[in-house]
Design a protein around this nucleic acid. Sequence first.
DNA 1: AGATAATCTTGATCAGGATCAAGTCATTTA
DNA 2: TAAATGACTTGATCCTGATCAAGATTATCT
Lengths: 252, 252
Amino acid sequence: MTNRKVVSFENIKVACKNCSLSTLCLPMGLSSEDVERLDSIIKRGRPYHRGDHLYRGGDKFQSLRVITSGSVKTYSPNEDGGEQVLGFHLPGELIGLDAIQDDHHNCSAVALETTAVCEVPFSQLESLSSLMPSLQHQMYRLLSREIGQETEMLTLLGKKSAEERLATFLLSFSERFKQRGFSPSDFFLSMSRHEIGNYLGLAVETVSRLFTRFQDEGLLHVERKHVQLQDLPRLYDIVQGADSIKSTQSRG
Amino acid sequence: MTNRKVVSFENIKVACKNCSLSTLCLPMGLSSEDVERLDSIIKRGRPYHRGDHLYRGGDKFQSLRVITSGSVKTYSPNEDGGEQVLGFHLPGELIGLDAIQDDHHNCSAVALETTAVCEVPFSQLESLSSLMPSLQHQMYRLLSREIGQETEMLTLLGKKSAEERLATFLLSFSERFKQRGFSPSDFFLSMSRHEIGNYLGLAVETVSRLFTRFQDEGLLHVERKHVQLQDLPRLYDIVQGADSIKSTQSRG
DNA sequence: AGATAATCTTGATCAGGATCAAGTCATTTA
DNA sequence: TAAATGACTTGATCCTGATCAAGATTATCT
């Protein structure tokens, strides 16, 4: 070890270079010196508890946030008092990108369970990205990826049946858990049925009925928030708009 | 003529500094020197005709494009041969941002009428933005704004009634035409009813019926693609989820 | 111009999923 | 441990908007 850097901050537990999430997060593709420069602007606060807000719509935008553990729901309050759930975010994911445009948050973010985040002061990140082309490039990519993800969601909400929506939702978590080294077929969902429904543009009752139906059909086992996917291929078929459950196994 | 090379005047008639769209477009907020540097990398090709593709899903991503006249539809082909319309784009709007993430286009863009665009080679733009913090900032803002716009669309598709969707659609055009110095209440829509329906997650027939109903209710006059909005305040009421048409004027 | 093909409108019927209503199960609190 | 509260499930009914079908209008082509 040539570099013996003494760090004086008291609450730093994790540095980017040691963080298992670096391949999903901002440092992706950065050289190790660059990672250190990035690391130097990142703040790590104490964890949020279930229900705590990371920020609320209208707050001044200061920092992007990367979830490091736990999970977060983002939502925007709509006119009539209700809310639209915009996304569920897992470790390694960046939130707050939508706030860059006008320097304040347009939506709110709330912890769904005990959650830790890295805060990245945006003005510093911006300055740094001017000096580091690879960081700038990574920022462009991340912003663009966010657009692409929302585009997929538009297709989901515009065209897909309830069944396709829930299957897509479940497989999205399956893939994201897998990326993070967890089981792609056995996991806990940290959000309520109500929140799932809101996110997918469905009523709670529909979500509940679909879980039951998927279970009856042997696609999965579900008990409260614990989901075990038992037939990934058929779930993928459903996502692709293949025949509905009924016809898939008609007269076996 | 000092210049012996004969240049098609399509190619040279606009420079950023003279372009009326600069307040909507990339140069927004740039100093005049910076605008010139930006201008130097921008290519202006000959116009596209109705139905011509600017790019298709799968194409290698080279350039962002700014519409300078006409209009463009972006869409992504989905599994079953159909398409999902992602947006309609007017002069001053930037398309292709979703392609940055993995260097190729995920969706297609087609001219809805005779359309001119500026092409902005992305790798050059990226280099330039490293040298020009104000350009970098503008890029972040534009990307972020795109995310915010898609977020609004998610809310539209997730929660709104057919009536609210069409009213929102019409007012979006109203506002965008107004921004561009055109009438906010008298304009031509360049896309078909089918495309409107696809974009809004509605069947063609529903769109057609809504136009008829809106007209019957005195909200607008419509004849084919020519729309005249006659009661903007009530359209805004509808967007906000206020009472539907029927109850708004019950027992007038 | 006349023929043909799209596009759009209108009407009739259908169905997916919302809403309403009730009951069950889990978790928290006292 | 019981009561209270909130989350989830299940059933019955309703309604919005899809689909099917036909006709009208407009655009395209030779």
